[in-house]
Design a protein around this nucleic acid. Structure first.
Length: 426
RNA sequence: GGAGAGGUGGCUGAGUGGUUGAAAGCGGCUCCCUGCUAAGGAGUUACAGGAGGCAACUCCUGUCGAGGGUUCGAAUCCCUCCCUCUCCGCCA
C-alpha cells in the first residue's frame, strides 16, 4: 500500500512511478478527497474537544453539589447534545470518505525502484548473469515424459481425485519431492534462517497484508464458509507472522524459511503448460522471507537472491538471473530478480524462483514497524522462492536424464534421497 | 457440536458511569547513592491521527478485542460480531 500522505502531498511522484508500470492514473480526485478528509478530521477534533469540556464541566458542577436537574445543568446538556449531533454528521462523512480513499489506495501497486529497467512486458526484462552449462541438442526429453516413463507421476488418476492441474507422485517421485524439501530447508537453516511451518489456510487480512487482495481474489482458492483462503505462497502467512507488531530494531533482520503447499487457481492460463509439473493448482515451495531495517534492504535483496541461487548451484542446475522490467513487476514488488532454470528437454529457461523487494509496501499494509530510540518506522520486506519444488524436480529430471531413460541425481541430493539415480520400477 | 469463563498498557493484574490513558507489581530505560551489595533511592516507560514549533518539544483528538447504541460524560450500562481458555462429545 502506498502512503496516503504522499498521495496528498506529492501525487505526481506516484503517478510518474505508476506510469513506468504502464498504469495511467489520475490521482487528482484522490488527492482532493484526502485533503477533504484531513479537513473534516480537524473539524471533528475541535468539536470533540468542546464536547469533552462540556462533559467535564457537568461532572465538576454535580460534584460541587449543584442539582443535576437545575437549569444550569440542563443548558450544558443541551449544548453537549448539539455538539454530539454535529460530530455524528461529520463522522459519517469522514467514514465514507476514508473508505473510498482506502479502497483506491489498496488497488494501487508498489512504485518500481529507480534501478528497475523500464519496459512493457517480459521481452524487456534484463539478463543479469548466468551460471552453469546449458545442455543443448536433439533427443532431450521433457520432464513429464521422463517422469511418466519412470512411473513417478500419474496425471490421469489425479484428475480422478481432483481435476486437471493436479499431480500425484509415486515411488521415487514422491520420495524425490520429499528429499528436495528437506534438502532446501537444511541448507537455508544452516545459514541462519529460522524454519517455519505455517498454516496453509489464511484469513482475508493476511492476504490483504501481503498484497494478494483485494485485487487478485480470482487467483486464490477460498473457503467461503469460514472466510479463509488457501495460501498461494508462504509469503502470505510469513508476512502476517508480524502483522501489527513493532519489532525492536536489534531483532532485525529476521529471516524465515518456510516449506508450504501453495494453491493457485491459475485463472486465465488455460492451455498453457498443461502437462507435467510446471503449472499446477497445488505445488510445494520453500520460501525465504526477510524483515529488515529500511536502510539495509538493498543489500538484503542481493543476499536473499544469492541464498536462492545457492540451491541451484548445489543441485548443479544451470540458470540465469533476470531482472524484471517495470511492466512485468508483481503488485507488491519494487524490484524483482527471477531465477530461471535451464530445461534441456523443453529447450528453454523457466522461472524457478522470484526474488522481490517490497520496500515498505507490505509493511504498511500489515502495519509492521521497527523502533529505535523514539523513532518508529515501517520495516522493509523481501521474499524469494528457495525454490519451487515441482519445477526443481522437472529441472533435475531434464538435466540429469540419461540415454537409457534413467536420471542421474545431483550429488548433493544423494544423502537425502538415498540413491544416486532414478530407474524405472520393475 | 453442547456447557461455562474471559478478552485492560511489554507482562501480571486492579478498576462497574465523572479530570481513569487507566492503581499496584514485574520488566525496560535514565540518573543518584553505596562496603551490610545478586542491595537501595528518585524519575521515566503505549500507539495512531492532526495542529503549531516545522529540530530536541507543546497542544488537540481517538484507542481498555471489533463495531454499533444509551448518556452532557463509558474501560465501566445495552446490542451484535470476533477471538481465547476450561469441561463434555468427536477426532489425526
Amino acid at each position: 500500500m502506498l502512503d496516503h500522505r504522499q498521495v496528498r502531498e506529492n501525487p505526481t511522484l506516484i503517478e510518474k512511478g505508476l506510469i513506468r508500470r504502464g498504469i495511467k492514473v489520475d490521482l487528482t480526485s484522490l488527492k482532493l478527497d484526502s485533503q477533504k478528509l484531513n479537513q473534516i478530521e480537524q473539524q471533528r477534533n475541535q468539536l470533540q474537544a468542546e464536547g469533552n469540556e462540556v462533559g467535564k464541566e457537568v461532572g465538576k458542577k454535580i460534584k460541587d453539589g449543584i442539582n443535576p436537574n437545575s437549569e444550569e445543568i440542563t443548558l450544558l446538556r443541551n449544548k453537549g447534545n448539539e455538539i454530539k449531533k454535529k460530530v455524528n454528521l461529520l463522522e459519517e462523512e469522514e467514514k465514507e470518505l476514508a473508505k473510498l480513499i482506502q479502497e483506491q489506495i489498496l488497488h494501487l501497486p508498489n512504485i518500481p525502484d529507480l534501478s528497475c529497467p523500464n519496459g512493457n512486458d517480459e521481452s524487456d526484462n534484463l539478463q543479469i548473469r548466468t551460471w552453469g552449462n546449458t545442455l543443448r541438442g536433439e533427443g532431450y526429453k521433457e520432464h513429464w515424459e521422463i517422469a511418466e516413463n519412470l512411473g513417478l507421476i500419474d496425471t490421469d488418476r489425479s484428475v480422478r481425485i481432483a481435476k486437471s492441474r493436479f499431480v500425484t507422485l509415486f515411488n521415487q517421485g514422491a520420495r524425490l519431492e520429499r528429499s528436495l524439501i528437506n534438502f532446501m530447508l537444511d541448507i537455508h537453516t544452516s545459514k541462519g534462517y529460522t524454519e517455519v511451518l505455517p498454516p496453509a489456510l489464511v484469513n482475508t487480512a493476511s492476504l490483504q497484508g501481503s498484497g494478494q487482495l483485494p485485487k487478485f481474489s480470482d487467483e486464490s482458492f477460498r473457503c467461503s464458509e469460514d472466510d479463509l483462503w488457501l495460501t498461494p505462497t508462504a509469503e502470505v502467512p510469513l508476512t502476517s507472522l508480524h502483522r501489527d507488531e513493532i519489532i525492536p530494531h536489534e531483532k532485525l533482520p529476521i529471516k524465515y524459511v518456510a516449506y508450504s503447499p501453495c494453491f493457485r487457481r491459475e485463472a486465465g492460463s488455460y492451455g498453457r503448460d498443461t502437462r507435467g509439473l510446471i503449472r499446477l493448482h497445488q505445488f510445494n515451495k520453500v520460501e525465504l522471507y526477510w524483515f529488515v531495517h529500511p536502510d539495509k534492504s538493498k543489500d538484503a535483496h542481493e543476499e536473499i537472491t544469492s541464498d536462492a541461487e545457492s540451491i541451484l548451484k548445489a543441485l548443479e542446475l544451470p540458470y540465469r538471473v533476470i531482472q524484471l522490467c517495470t511492466g512485468d513487476l508483481g503488485f507488491s514488488a519494487s524490484c524483482t530478480y527471477d531465477l530461471e532454470v535451464w530445461l534441456p528437454g523443453a529447450n528453454t529457461f523457466r522461472e524457478i524462483s522470484s526474488s522481490s523487494i517490497c520496500d515498505d509496501f507490505q509493511a504498511r499494509r500489515s502495519s509492521i514497524r521497527t523502533k529505535s530510540g523514539k523513532k518508529t518506522q515501517l520495516v522493509h520486506t523481501l521474499n524469494a522462492s528457495g525454490l519451487a519444488i515441482g519445477r526443481t524436480m522437472a529441472a533435475i529430471l531434464e538435466n540429469g536424464q540419461q540415454p537409457d531413460g534413467s536420471v542421474t541425481l545431483p550429488e548433493a541430493l544423494v544423502p537425502y534421497f538415498g540413491d544416486k539415480q532414478l530407474k524405472p520400477a520393475k
